[in-house]
Write a protein that binds this DNA or RNA. Structure first.
Length: 351
DNA sequence: TCTGGGGTCCTAGGACCC
DNA sequence: TCTGGGGTCCTAGGACCC
């Protein structure tokens, strides 16, 4: 199967609208105001040279690149471009498409010559959308996903059982999909620093540290193994959440009350569009400077807008008084339809 | 240096039940 | 008085992804 990843997607879409930006360092994030609390969504390659990347505070990014063009996030424009890309992928012969985000998808296909298929796909995407993408080819989803990085930008690369360790073996475990800084740190404490070391580890030795499920799974990741099934089952959201980072920390109970009301209204609107009952609520609180707590409630049987608001405000009662609040988030968990992906476990690398 | 917003899944521990 | 073994549900927290 193939893994397709658009190159500097968001920045590329912005350049299509404003060709005069081509070749300039572009940073897209927040409302495009580097004095606000926000982070970088995407930086163009010209900006990345200065050490700017996704997730970096916008303020810092702006400081690193004095001449940067800083633009606000325009989700609708990116979604529109993304839809065009995904439609192009679905139009490829024999393709089963599993979308992973705005700029990423797996494409399942049986091809005589996978490289040629990938090149044709790239050409079609470029012709239809004027966007460049990189393509990874693999005999598992994990290998295809990691292969893409070797192909960037605008290239094609293939990883298989045979060459996986040749290319990935000496790399740090953090480069695996599903291993972040925390897990790689805990692996390091077990003497496991590289992909090859993780691949060679006894899965049972990982169980005490990571649990019966995740322990063996990390070992599998190290070997690049896992499913090779691309699943195009339409996505059914488990829930919806809204969160707000306040430019000035909240200190007054009235401010908190108003904020929770506002979040509840937004979340209920999102949920209403799905037409499924709310079965749980979670309130997320980030206190200044940076500690996060969550408070959850199950909601028995009823789905009533007023009921949800009452329960959300009830959750807000758990907020610690006197501590400045930097962020509030509210998540509503929805009942799943009976026929929704029984046994299917997508994302989070959870295959 | 100071950290968005939208998601998903896993684990641990306590409460409660038989 | 001390305490098995199995199960479910709920809450909190952690981790990761795009």
């Amino acid at each position: 199967m193939l893994h397709v990843d658009l190159d500097q997607f968001i920045a590329a879409v912005e350049v299509l609208r404003r060709p005069e930006l081509a070749g300039k360092p572009i940073i897209v994030g927040g409302r495009g105001d580097p004095t606000e609390r926000a982070v970088v969504s995407t930086a163009s390659y010209e900006a990345r040279v200065f050490g700017v990347g996704s997730g970096m505070p916008l303020r810092i990014a702006a400081r690193k690149v004095p001449d940067a063009v800083i633009l606000p996030v325009d989700a609708e424009a990116y979604l529109e471009a993304s839809d065009a890309v995904m439609a192009t992928l679905r139009a490829q012969p024999g393709a089963v498409v599993q979308v992973l985000g705005w700029d990423e998808a797996f494409v399942g296909v049986e091809a005589e010559d996978p490289e040629a298929y990938a090149r044709q796909l790239q050409a079609d995407v470029l012709e239809r959308t004027q966007l460049h993408c990189s393509v990874g080819i693999g005999d598992t989803l994990i290998r295809a996903k990691n292969a893409t990085d070797f192909g960037k930008p605008a290239g094609v690369f293939r990883l298989t059982t045979a060459n996986w360790l040749d290319f990935m073996g000496d790399r740090p475990t953090k480069e695996l999909w599903g291993v972040g800084s925390k897990i790689s740190g805990r692996l390091a404490k077990l003497g496991i620093n590289t992909v090859a070391e993780l691949a060679a580890a006894d899965p049972q030795t990982l169980v005490p540290e990571f649990g019966p499920k995740m322990g063996p799974w990390y070992n599998e990741l190290g070997r690049g193994d896992g499913t090779s099934v691309v699943d195009d089952t339409p996505w059914v959201a488990r829930g919806h959440s809204r969160e707000t980072t306040f430019q000035q920390d909240l200190t007054e109970p009235d401010q908190v009350h108003d904020a929770v009301r506002g979040l509840t209204a937004q979340v209920l609107k999102d949920v209403a569009a799905e037409g499924r009952p709310v079965i749980g609520l979670t309130l997320k609180v980030r206190y200044a400077p940076f500690t996060t707590k969550t408070h959850a409630r199950k909601i028995p049987e009823t789905f009533d807008r007023e009921d949800v608001l009452v329960r959300a405000l009830d959750l807000a009662g758990a907020i610690e008084p006197g501590r400045p609040i930097r962020l509030l988030g509210l998540r509503a968990e929805m009942a799943m339809p009976d026929d929704a992906r029984k046994g299917h476990t997508p994302t989070r690398g959870g295959w």
